[in-house]
Computed example of a mutant assay.
Amino acid sequence: MQPSNLRIALFSGNYNYVRDGANQALNRLVDFLLRQGVQVRIYSPTVANPAFEPTGNLVSVPSVAIPGRPEYRIPITLPARVRRDLAEFAPNVVHISSPDIVAHRAISWARRRNITAIASIHTRFETYLAYYRLEMLEPLVRAIMRRLYRRCDAIVAPAESTAAVLRAQRMNRDISIWSRGVDRDQFHPGRRDMAWRRGLGIDDDAMVVGFLGRLVMEKGLDQFADAIDLLASRNVKYRVLVIGDGPAREWFGQRLPDAVFIGQQVGPDLARGLASSDVLLNPSITEAFGNVTLEAMACGLPVVAADATGATNLVRNRETGILVDPFDADGFADALETYARDPELRARHGETGLKFARTMDWDQINSAVLKMYLRVTEKRARLARFTRRS
């Protein structure tokens, strides 16, 4: 089988209506696949004013807004209209990227037709429950996800640390790695702009602690704020720069009244804000892969991160950053103080991280997914021939 023989039906809970690391990776994958001659059709919720134009052909799937989080939508059904479109496209691979209702329906559709089914993991959804006081539902959610993923031929995870968790949870036997790259034309140390920093009222000798991401509690905003509270008592000069927006913006602003909030940024403005920081603090434990961590490293910043999936595959402790127990606010503050008092260490760790980021090429990384599609599809075809002969 050649790449041009592949017809991929990609199901996404959020392909382009809200910008995040997961859908940026999916759009980059689709772009790569199209350049290899693969045919791709995407099925996802749509909105009137999406965050960005989609890569590839996008078919709208019915959805409803999530209560309390209306910016996100849940796909709810595969109506006759979408099923007809799917049948006419005639995929030989169905790829799901979020464990929602439509993903379950899509896998059932593929199974009935003996079509290869693939799942990609983009976040640790079960870890979100703790932030909404719903921990008691975690066993149920994990069981539902296990039923979905074990009906797939294979799973791709963004990091070995995440794959190890999936194996321990018995999600599937065939789990391989689809890592993430970084746009080095966008993110690099040359984006650093001290004049821009001064325009925000930040002194040159203040260590800028950056936060990058959507302002939602599951990104570890409480741990971030607690660490900054502790750092404030340690007689070091620092400022907090927050890049991003979201429903917890007011809460975060009240916790960090002296922080500089610049809202959601894209393109060169995003890279300038990140590169003009001095260290990234990323306390999130919900990541399957820390996209913002890699982007910070590409800008030459050391990273202080939670010792959890999404960071351990990127941050080499005491070499490119510092890993901290996820719920140790004192540990986060200690790490930040270390960098504030030792700019040379900060620069050395940043340079080492930059060298690593330069190895993360998107096309090379996405080629692993293409090879996985071909391998698993050929395996299913061999099994089908064997079954017919038997």
Rank of each mutant, 00 (worst) to 15 (best):
L383T: 07
I107D: 04
T162R: 04
R35L: 14
Q24A: 11
I118H: 13
V93W: 03
P62H: 02
P268C: 05
H188D: 11
R19Q: 11
Q364D: 10
L33M: 10
V240S: 00
G300E: 09
V93Y: 10
G68R: 02
A195I: 13
S179D: 13
D269M: 08
A164I: 04
R41I: 09
T77N: 00
N16K: 06
A335I: 12
V18H: 11
L336R: 00
G267T: 03
R105S: 07
A275Q: 01
N366I: 07
V165C: 13
M297C: 05
T46C: 12
W178Y: 05
I322C: 07
G220F: 07
N366R: 05
F327K: 01
D330N: 14
N291P: 00
D203S: 10
F224A: 07
T127Y: 15
A110D: 13
D334K: 02
E378W: 07
G310M: 03
R150F: 00
M207A: 14
L256A: 01
V376E: 14
L26F: 01
E71Y: 08
F52T: 01
L78I: 04
M171T: 01
I115L: 12
A106V: 06
A103W: 05
A275L: 03
E138M: 08
L274S: 05
A248K: 09
Y128G: 01
R41N: 03
L241S: 08
L241E: 04
A232Y: 05
D258E: 15
L26E: 15
P247I: 00
L374V: 14
E337L: 09
L270M: 07
D229Q: 14
R35A: 15
L200C: 02
R388I: 14
R112T: 13
L148A: 01
T77F: 00
A335V: 13
G321H: 04
D342A: 15
N114V: 00
G220A: 04
P257I: 04
D363P: 04
L6N: 04
D153N: 12
Y128A: 06
Y43L: 05
N5S: 08
Y15E: 03
I118Y: 14
D269Q: 15
A168Q: 12
W251Y: 13
M171Q: 12
N172S: 15
H188A: 12
R348G: 09
N23W: 06
A106D: 05
E250P: 04
T127S: 14
G56D: 12
